[in-house]
C-alpha cells in the first residue's frame, strides 16, 4: 500500500517535470512568435492576406537580410555585376554595352519573368531567357542554371527591382494566351504528390504559420529568389526550392527549367502580386 503511494508520488513528480519542460518550450516559442508578430518591420512585408517569407523568419535572419553588408547573398550579386560589365562571346559586347546602367534599364524587370515566349509558345524563366540571349545575341556560352555566375547575374538584375511591388503581368491583351499556363501552375500547386501525398497548398496555404517541427511554414512566396538560404550556405533558385519541397514529400522532382516548374513559378508570381521584391532575401 505504502509502496504504491510512493510510486504514484514519484510518478506525479515526474509528470510535473515533464509538463514543466513542455511548458517552457512552448513559452520560448510563444515569445519568439510574439516578437515576430510585433516586429514593426512586418508592415512592409504583409499585404492583405499575403505574407512574405520574411515575416516567418527569426529576428536574426531578418537583420541579416536588411543589412547589405551582413546579407550573405551580396558576394553573388557582386559577381553578377562583374558579369554584367564584362565583354563576352564572339560579339565582344557586355550586357552593359546595350543596356547601360542596370539600375535604370533593369528596374521592374524581375516582375516580367517567367514571361511568354512566342518562339516556343511556352513560358520562359529568366535563366533560360538569359542563356538564349547570351548564346544567340552575344555568341557566348551557356551558363548552368544553378551556377554561381548565372545565380549572381539573376540576383544582380532582380536587385534592381528590390522594393518595387510584384505585379501581375496578365492583362486583357494577353489573358487568353497566359491563362492555360497559369491554370497548369495552379493545378501543380494544389495536386497531392509523393508518398507523403501532400500538395504545396497543404503546407503553404492551409497550414501557413503552423510549426512543422522547428520550421514555421510560410506562404511559399517567390519574391526573394534567388534567396540566400542559411541551410544551403549559398543562394538557390526557386526551382531548387521546388525540387527540395518535392523531395521532402518523397515525390520525384522535375528538372530546373522544366515546363512544370516554370508554370509553377509563373503561378506563384501572380499569387504574390502586391508583395515587394526582396532579392537577395535571406531565409533559414
Amino acid at each position: 500500500m505504502i509502496g504504491r503511494k510512493i510510486l504514484s508520488v514519484v510518478a506525479i513528480m515526474g509528470l510535473g517535470i515533464i509538463v514543466g519542460l513542455a511548458n517552457n518550450a512552448s513559452i520560448a516559442f510563444a515569445d519568439e512568435a510574439e516578437r515576430r508578430a510585433k516586429d514593426p518591420r512586418n508592415k512592409n512585408y504583409v499585404v492583405g492576406e499575403k505574407k512574405s517569407g520574411y515575416v516567418y523568419m527569426t529576428s536574426q535572419t531578418r537583420d541579416m537580410q536588411d543589412d547589405d553588408f551582413e546579407n550573405s547573398g551580396f558576394p553573388w550579386v557582386d559577381q553578377g555585376e562583374e558579369i554584367w560589365n564584362k565583354k563576352m562571346g564572339t560579339v565582344g559586347k557586355a550586357c552593359a554595352s546595350c543596356h547601360d546602367a542596370a539600375s535604370k534599364s533593369m528596374k521592374g524587370v524581375a516582375n516580367t519573368f517567367p514571361r511568354y515566349d512566342a518562339k516556343t509558345k511556352k513560358m520562359i524563366a529568366i535563366q533560360a531567357f538569359l542563356n538564349r540571349h547570351i548564346i544567340d545575341d552575344m555568341g557566348g556560352k551557356k551558363m548552368k542554371w544553378e551556377s554561381d555566375g548565372m545565380m549572381g547575374l539573376v540576383m544582380y538584375v532582380k536587385l534592381q527591382s528590390r522594393g518595387t511591388p510584384v505585379k501581375s503581368i496578365i492583362n486583357d491583351q494577353n489573358r487568353a494566351t497566359l491563362a492555360p499556363f497559369l491554370a497548369k501552375g495552379k493545378k501543380f500547386f494544389e495536386q497531392r504528390r509523393g508518398l507523403l501525398d501532400l500538395s504545396c497548398k497543404h503546407c503553404h496555404e492551409d497550414y501557413a504559420g503552423s510549426l512543422a517541427r522547428s520550421n514555421v511554414l510560410s506562404m511559399g512566396m517567390p519574391n526573394g529568389f534567388p534567396t540566400y538560404r542559411l541551410k544551403w550556405q549559398k543562394p538557390g533558385t526557386i526551382h531548387r526550392r521546388f525540387s527540395g519541397c518535392n523531395k521532402n514529400v518523397r515525390a520525384k522532382p522535375y528538372k530546373r527549367g522544366s515546363e512544370e516548374y516554370t508554370n509553377l513559378e509563373f503561378y506563384l508570381m501572380q499569387r504574390a502580386a502586391g508583395l515587394k521584391w526582396e532579392t537577395p532575401a535571406v531565409r533559414n
Binding site: 504528390r193 509523393g194 508518398l195 501525398d197 501532400l198 518523397r250 515525390a251 520525384k252
Partner: peptide, 18 residues
C-alpha cells in the same frame, strides 16, 4: 494533410526508392 502511413497505392509521382 496527415499522410496515410500504411497505404501503398493511389499516389502521384512517388520517388523511385519509395
Amino acid at each position: 494533410i496527415m499522410p496515410s502511413f500504411h497505404l501503398k497505392t493511389g499516389y502521384h509521382r512517388v520517388q523511385k526508392k519509395w
